[in-house]
Design a protein around this nucleic acid. Structure first.
Lengths: 232, 232
DNA sequence: TAGATATATTGATATATGTCATTATCTTTG
DNA sequence: CAAAGATAATGACATATATCAATATATCTA
């Protein structure tokens, strides 16, 4: 069986794991199931690229994905790290049908591609689903505002602190955590050069705030990190 | 008559000026009209403040308003300049019912405050309106991505160029344009200190790219400004 | 396993940008 | 109109951050 079109369970099983389908009835889930393609991505593989047509609504069921804006001079800005079960849905869907950021697997991942028409018709016909979606978009928007402040008003230690807290609380949800993100990725999350990111990590390490060993991180002094985040 | 509760025409007249009500029928417009309070703000007056409860959906019918995030150390980041007829609607509505940015009139302005319940029920019951709203939120989101890149990857000349182009094309829609924004506001739009903003403006002036006289701006060489915007 | 390639680390240096102090200009107000 | 207050402009200086170059370490591959 071709691994790129390998079908597993249905959307019902994802419903148990994720809240994003909670307000869909069995009929609606079947609708999605019907037009669904399951795709496997290896770590490092591009899932979709900024500037290309946005034809699917994408749902991540396994692995982790970074979404990032490709800016100038080959510099990227990572917007978020997505984990299962969460959808990856850009603003292009309701605007110009284009991708406005790129998505890349940072671990071996599995995603379901669903026809956009199905998604849009669900939004139109199920007010609960639409409201849930608006809630999700809103949360994302609030997070973006925090990101704005972090990136434009904090200096490097504050930004790295924010990234470490984000990884601990939102991405890996554990304290000693292992990441597959490179140092360049950490820099792209905090809007600085990789050399600067490395330097700040070393400072935190020297001050006993964190423990770093390759890609294994442990935050030893959370309070201190929160303080650094707040004082910029 | 108290100027703070002075009622004029109905929403129908706004419908003619703005696309945001285009998919509402007369009955729905009447629904809004019924729960609508028209408020006048003088230039410089705060319309709502970040951190306070978000209880209304606000529609600007006259004047201009800046929306801005209040960050650390009394530094603000201006998100957008809103002009009539456009609504000002934060993500708090579908999240925590809080304002996540502040809004201040930068010209004498008139805004309609509408009950949020009415707005939400329109979203639930009129799929076209919901889709239109999603379109609007999406456009905002796309603009935010551009803002991210401008603020985090461009240096000062590129950021000031972006602001000038934004004011010319999106806010005042004319080339010699007069603004009521202060130099501090221009700095808050481009994420830098007001001294730096002033310096860059002077450089542009010395290079013959713009003409500045107090708050009167004219972009003499648009191509040059676009180039500066793109090269960072 | 060795060589090759990518990634991480460190130091030296250049530069973009913020801060502070001072003066100039505009705006308000009694 | 003059005084006072706000806003704008400029220069000198400090510093955060990027860049470049060199080395170290890890990872892949033949």
């Amino acid at each position: 069986m071709n691994q790129h079109t390998q079908y597993t369970k249905g959307c019902s099983s994802c419903k148990d794991k994720s809240e994003i389908f909670s307000c869909l009835c069995q009929f609606e889930l079947d609708q999605i199931d019907e037009k669904r393609i399951e795709v496997h991505f290896k770590a490092g593989e591009l899932i979709f690229k900024q500037g290309t047509p946005n034809l699917h609504f994408l749902c991540l069921t396994q692995g982790k994905v970074k979404t990032y804006i490709e800016g100038y001079n080959d510099k990227n800005l990572i917007l978020s790290i997505v984990k299962p079960v969460e959808y990856i849905l850009g603003p292009g869907i309701y605007a110009d049908q284009m991708h406005h950021f790129s998505a890349m697997a940072i671990e071996d991942s599995v995603a379901c591609l669903v026809d956009l028409g199905t998604f849009k018709s669900l939004i139109r016909n199920n007010a609960d689903f639409a409201e849930d979606f608006l809630r999700k978009v809103s949360m994302q928007s609030i997070y973006n505002y925090e990101l704005f402040i972090s990136l434009t008003q904090k200096q490097m230690p504050g930004r790295i602190a924010d990234v470490l807290i984000y990884l601990k609380d939102k991405v890996y949800e554990s304290n000693p955590f292992h990441t597959t993100l490179s140092r360049q990725d950490l820099a792209d999350l905090s809007g600085m050069s990789k050399e600067s990111a490395i330097r700040i990590l070393r400072e935190f390490k020297d001050e006993g705030i964190i423990q770093v060993n390759g890609n294994d991180f442990e935050i030893l002094n959370v309070d201190s990190l929160v303080k650094i985040s707040q004082t910029g």
